[in-house]
Structures are given as structure tokens and as C-alpha cells.
């Protein structure tokens, strides 16, 4: 694998994580518990999809085959998407969405802080811009973890169930492959193993403060680094790509 191929693949991973989580959050439109939350969740969707545009645009540039960010989003099949399984999981109830966001934003906060120092200037620039948004997403998710965990008995139960259900998708966030090896050597990205202890510490603190329990199950899902996803991704892709696929010669 060349450095260029690794960088292309890495950008797809970052871009797909943003795009697919943005897609999931956008599904909350007109479904949230109060309008303020409707706006908050779809605003995060807007941030994430905006970020995916910047990253996929760069991916297309790195690939050098004349594709655009839209080609990468709308014409790639499901086996060529590299987002983590966590972000494609269905919204579930509000607690599932918050826990998913909490795990992911805590991870993104640590990752993008490192990417700000990347030797790849484009990625460093995107990271610098996006870190402010991630801080807000993390604060939002953390505030809700506290409210749900330490709110009513029902919200406590729901939050704990969501933690337990999402737990098996957390190890994969830190999985690395040849892409990471190459880019770590180039100073473009960071060793994800180095983020893990910090991630665990941060989420443990919030979970405990929320009066919830850190799950202990050791079974972990994997697959996305090879483009092997849960069954849910196919539906997201089918919905998202439908117009571009149905009218391949049309411009929108």
C-alpha cells in the first residue's frame, strides 16, 4: 500500500464516520422531545455532514481520479464504506442517540486534537475547524448523560440499557490496520492505542457522575476496517444514494 492509498483510505474512514453519523442525527428532524433538541440534533448533523464534505473532497483529491465528494458519497457501494459500526447504529430512543454520541464525541475529541498536529496540512486545517464543533457535541452529550442517568428511574434505566447496548461497538473505534501504520510513520495520524486509556478515563468519569455503571461485557463487534458492516448501513446507503443511482445522468 502506498502512502497515497493509505491517505485516501484514511480520509474515507474519517469522512464516512462524519457522513453516516450526520445522516443518523438528521433522522431526528421533527422527532425530538422538544424543538430545542430537534434543532440541537440536526445542527450537529449539519456540522458532521459539513465536515464530511471537506474530508471527502480531500479524499477525492488524494485519489486523483477526477471524482468529487458527491461521487464518493453517492456512488460507492456499501462494502467500500469505512465508518465505524457505532455510528451507523439506529437512533433507538433518545438515550441510545445520546450514548452513541457520547462515545463517539469523546473519541473524536481525542482524535481530532491530535489531528490538529498532523503533518498533513489539509487534515490539520479541517481538525482545527472541527474541534470547536466537537467540543460542543461532547458538552451536549455529556449534559444529557447526566440528566438521563441522574434524572428519573425510567431515564436511568433507559440510559443504562443504551450504555450496555452500544458498548460492543466501542473497541472498534481504536482498531488499526496497515493504513494507520503507514500514516503514523509519516506523522499524519496518531496511534489510536494511545488514545484509548484517556477515552476510558473520560467516559468512566461521566458515567459514574451520571450514577450509571460502566458495562463490563467483553464481547466486541468488528469489521468496518474491511468494509464489513452491520445490516443497517445498506439501508442508509440505499436511501441516501437513491436519486443519484436512479438518474445517473442528471445534475442536481
Amino acid at each position: 500500500m502506498t502512502k497515497q492509498e493509505a491517505l485516501f483510505s484514511y480520509c474515507l474512514r474519517l469522512g464516512d464516520n462524519s457522513l453516516i453519523l450526520g445522516h443518523r442525527l438528521s433522522e431526528w428532524s421533527s422527532k425530538a422531545p422538544i424543538i430545542e433538541e430537534d434543532l440541537a440534533l440536526t445542527n450537529m448533523a449539519l456540522d458532521l455532514i459539513g465536515r464530511s464534505v471537506a474530508i471527502l473532497k480531500y479524499a477525492a483529491e488524494v485519489e486523483g481520479k477526477g471524482h468529487t465528494e458527491d461521487d464518493l458519497a453517492y456512488r460507492r457501494p456499501e462494502r467500500k464504506f469505512y465508518n465505524n459500526l457505532l455510528v451507523e447504529q439506529p437512533n433507538g430512543d433518545f438515550a441510545v442517540t445520546i450514548v452513541r454520541q457520547f462515545f463517539n464525541s469523546t473519541f473524536e475529541y481525542l482524535l481530532y486534537e491530535e489531528l490538529m498536529k498532523s503533518k498533513d496540512e489539509t487534515l490539520a486545517g479541517i481538525a482545527a475547524k472541527t474541534i470547536k464543533e466537537i467540543k460542543y457535541h461532547l458538552r451536549h452529550a455529556t449534559d444529557w448523560m447526566l440528566r438521563l442517568g441522574d434524572g428519573t428511574p425510567e431515564s436511568h434505566l433507559r440510559a443504562q440499557k443504551a450504555l450496555n447496548d452500544m458498548w460492543m461497538f466501542t473497541d472498534e473505534l481504536f482498531e488499526m490496520n496497515e493504513v494507520d501504520e503507514i500514516l503514523i510513520k509519516e506523522g499524519i495520524t496518531v496511534d489510536l492505542n494511545m488514545l484509548k486509556a484517556n477515552w476510558s478515563k473520560k467516559i468512566n468519569e461521566v458515567i459514574l457522575e451520571s450514577t450509571l455503571t460502566v458495562p463490563t461485557s467483553t464481547f466486541m463487534q468488528t469489521g468496518s476496517r474491511q468494509g464489513i458492516h452491520s445490516e443497517y448501513l445498506g439501508y442508509i446507503i440505499a436511501e441516501m444514494q437513491y436519486l443519484q443511482r436512479a438518474y445517473p445522468n442528471a445534475k442536481w
Binding site: S26, E27, L46, I49, E69, D70, M240, Y242, L243
Partner: peptide, 19 residues
């Protein structure tokens, strides 16, 4: 139509509009 908007730009514009 948010999840089915035919381009990323169209999706962002629509999301912002609904917000």
C-alpha cells in the same frame, strides 16, 4: 427528503432550512 437529498450541498441547504 433530508436523507434522500441528491447531493451533499443540497442536503446541507435543506437541513439548514428546516432548522
Amino acid at each position: 427528503w433530508i436523507t434522500r437529498a441528491p447531493s451533499l450541498r443540497a442536503k446541507l441547504i435543506l437541513l439548514a432550512k428546516i432548522q
